[in-house]
């Protein structure tokens, strides 16, 4: 049974409680560490496994990608569009590699699926744009991020 207990008279006066509350906020005001991260100068430390902006890994300026089509197949948002082509040395490569970043849900499945470690998700999280950006191959080939 729920017993209704009336608070004691000194609690109902609220004087002590109010002064305690004021003391707490005063301590916060003067001594407590401030939690604000002043963004452009200070940045939050994200996990190294953070899934941010994509890039295509390249070795000696040749992309690792062989246009095997595993990433567009696994992509749940179907935001990767690859057109495959053939190099002079008969090696398969992506002529076109577009990521429609507006559709991307940053699940990281493309990274998991890739057998050549070609598509990677970096730590970059500032991707705001003024137009509806589609990341093209030239853009993705720049080695950004810290992975």
């Amino acid at each position: 049974m729920l017993v209704k207990r009336k608070p004691a008279i000194w609690n109902r006066l609220y004087f002590v409680e109010i002064i305690q509350g004021l003391w707490i906020t005063f301590k916060n005001f003067l001594f407590h560490k401030k939690v604000t991260i002043q963004f452009p100068e200070q940045r939050r430390d994200y996990s190294s496994r953070y899934r941010g902006q994509h890039y295509i890994k390249s070795v000696n300026n040749v992309e690792n990608c062989t246009a095997c089509m595993l990433c567009p197949t696994v992509c749940p948002a179907s935001c990767i569009h690859i057109i495959a082509g053939e190099r002079e040395d008969k090696e398969k490569y992506p002529v076109k590699f577009d990521i429609d970043i507006l559709r991307c849900c940053f699940c990281g499945m493309c990274e998991e699926a890739c057998p050549k470690d070609a598509i990677k998700l970096s730590n970059i999280y500032e991707m705001s744009q003024q137009n509806r950006e589609v990341y093209e191959k030239d853009f993705l080939l720049e080695q950004r991020g810290n992975k």
Partner: peptide, 10 residues
């Protein structure tokens, strides 16, 4: 600023 400092903001 006072409210911010009280709430541990800047």
């Amino acid at each position: 600023r006072g409210s911010a400092l009280i709430q541990n903001r800047l």
